[in-house]
Design a protein around this nucleic acid. Sequence first.
DNA 1: TCACGCCCATGCAAAACCCGCATCGGTCGA
DNA 2: TCGACCGATGCGGGTTTTGCATGGGCGTGA
Lengths: 314, 314
Amino acid sequence: MAGASFWSQFELRQLRCFVAAAEELHFGRAAARMNMTQPPLSRQIQLLEHVMGVKLLDRTSRAVKLTPAGRVFLLEARRILRLTESAALATRRIASGEAGTITLGFTAASGYSFLPMLLLQRASHAPNIDVALKEMVSTDQAESLLTGRIDVGLLRPPIARTEFTTLKVSEERLVAALPVGDPRLVQATLTLKDFDHQPLVMYAAEGARYFHDMLTGLFEAAGAAPIPIQSLSQIHSMLALVRAGIGAALVPEAAQSLHFDDVHFRPVETDPIAPVELFAAWRSDNDNPALEAFLDLLRPESIEDLEALAAEEH
Amino acid sequence: MAGASFWSQFELRQLRCFVAAAEELHFGRAAARMNMTQPPLSRQIQLLEHVMGVKLLDRTSRAVKLTPAGRVFLLEARRILRLTESAALATRRIASGEAGTITLGFTAASGYSFLPMLLLQRASHAPNIDVALKEMVSTDQAESLLTGRIDVGLLRPPIARTEFTTLKVSEERLVAALPVGDPRLVQATLTLKDFDHQPLVMYAAEGARYFHDMLTGLFEAAGAAPIPIQSLSQIHSMLALVRAGIGAALVPEAAQSLHFDDVHFRPVETDPIAPVELFAAWRSDNDNPALEAFLDLLRPESIEDLEALAAEEH
DNA sequence: TCACGCCCATGCAAAACCCGCATCGGTCGA
DNA sequence: TCGACCGATGCGGGTTTTGCATGGGCGTGA
């Protein structure tokens, strides 16, 4: 095998021996620090000098000195060894879930209320977990969960995949968005009957299937029938139409944070009092170590925490 | 030996195996790249995972994937390996003398002329050689050369040490520094006779022994005797006294670059026409690999180069 | 559906490596 | 000049690592 001279690469053990010898300037003490005897340490350093092709230590039987090249190499060796330690540390932190990156899918509507609270919670309870955000509709989230493009999705039911574990993370009431001057604004609270035969900006069946189906069901159960004016999927677009006086809209209460001028909100009584549900879903076999720590943020006790925290903000 | 489980530190060989496997995502090809067979490579990676306490690769019989921790560790491992290569390179460059640091002692007077030219030369001919500058008088330089605090000294004779190798690097003429209004300024050239019985700012015997002894000898040989007014060792201090009209001074021609207002210079004829000598000296057994490359800058042919270069500047 | 191929893990014996002990050779100080 | 100190080296033993052969799991194609 002629590869010997070709394989000119040192090993970390040799670096550790060299650093010990360079710092002690005494092979015996250096060997003791390395928990070995002096002869092997001598050999490790000879080997290192051989593969480097450079004399690193000037040794007489009376004194050990660094050569100029050895001085430079000592600095480099220390840097390398420091780096190996920090690399091991960082990797173990990732593996333990202490740190890491979670890729999170979320729907536009959840970005108004739940997501900000969640990120606030993360900043204080899991600061080493990075969260990469990807806005997408619920069906795309399910697809992305399967392929691994996102670790966790914040999405609307139904979620019918056996590969997923799910957790309800929030329930919201519906509120009515009404333009300034709408006569229904005199009431403190509305019912679905108040929208019977009235123009209503509606959700699109494709882009916002969940809200579309939910409202359809609610109105049917309540025996009321609004006049659908326009079908949209983005809540802020719907509010813009409301502001233009085209009609009312029914939106999750968190949408009030959008603060459109000349658009006012009133609570609406519905059969389940908080019909707007948001679920977290993730692949049961997801091996991202940061997942467990991230999911802790979603557990009920954490949710209460963060809702209390959000309340204090006001 | 019970230290096995205690020595939880990986080796570079394991990093190289891991990087190969992580990049190929195929143990067989990775092993081929590492010039070995697949089983040892498997074992190296198992060993690495064991000492790290972290699973880095997810391997089924059908596919090899990086775990989240493995992704992070791959980046770290590449960084470490890059660093080892650059460390070896840098160290070999130092050892070969291509790069390095020379600590240079110099006298204040040589800082006015020779040193700037030398540094200019270094910048273009040996840019990888750093020069650390230490101003000190000639006797201190001799002492520092012996102890190794400086590699090379730019100093004045006599240099009587057998440990040193010396090289004359410059010869300068003396010029007279005269205050505005001095009657001798009408002459284009002076002789030492022009200073007979005239006030002269003189060099101190301790701090500037070389110039002191040289002037004393020159005047004696010329049969002239100036009136010593004050003894100083710093040329710029002497010129300040000249400017104040206290008397004339004799300084190396390079001191003209100090440009004192109201002080004008005239050449002086002396027996050796250029009596101000500057030597480089270094320990013959200095092992700094950069020394040879640095000394090349001082050789006659280089000196001519840099004087030509300095001339072009004007 | 079954057999084949691909691929990583593992058992095993040989080779290589590394360690510690003993000792050598050189240098400094008493 | 002798002894103490210190790094280098010869050598035997034990551990590690390697390569070969093989096992076992999982897709794939007939």
